[in-house]
Amino acid sequence: MKVHVQFTLNGEPAEFLAEPRQTLLECLRDNLNLTGTKEGCGDGNCGSCSVLLDGQLVTSCLVLGVETQGQRVDTVEGIAKGSTLHPIQKAFIDHAALQCGICTPGFLMATKALLDHEPNPTEPQIRLWLANNLCRCTGYDKIVRAVQAAAAEMRA
């Protein structure tokens, strides 16, 4: 039986009908048509489906949609302000911190969670925090530089 889920999505009230077996990732993409969140491994290893659940970074492939009843979910679609990119998005473009782009929404959300938690992270802190996100294109260095640049921009 489908469940009526009401929650806050990117700051706005939202609702969807979910089968209990549907993950939050499936609900976002298939029920709510928010396809910014990507599926990589589907078992919590790669981090490409990372979103914020009540402000906490989670992999949406390991959360059931029905678990988010009454909770707050933030996805990559919510971080830009209209047509103005979030400083993290801008830094990823400026530093060429992406190639194919599949992992990028997950990296953006993980970076947002990091900088919400620690506005001035060291490089080891950045690398450890982002260890739950895999990228097969960039070799990570450009991502780390982008995160450092975004952090500096957001502190300014």
């Binding site: 906490q56 982002l130 260890a131």
Partner: peptide, 9 residues
């Protein structure tokens, strides 16, 4: 245990 996102759950 796991990475940041796994530790969230």
């Amino acid at each position: 245990i796991g990475g940041t996102a796994v530790q969230g759950r």
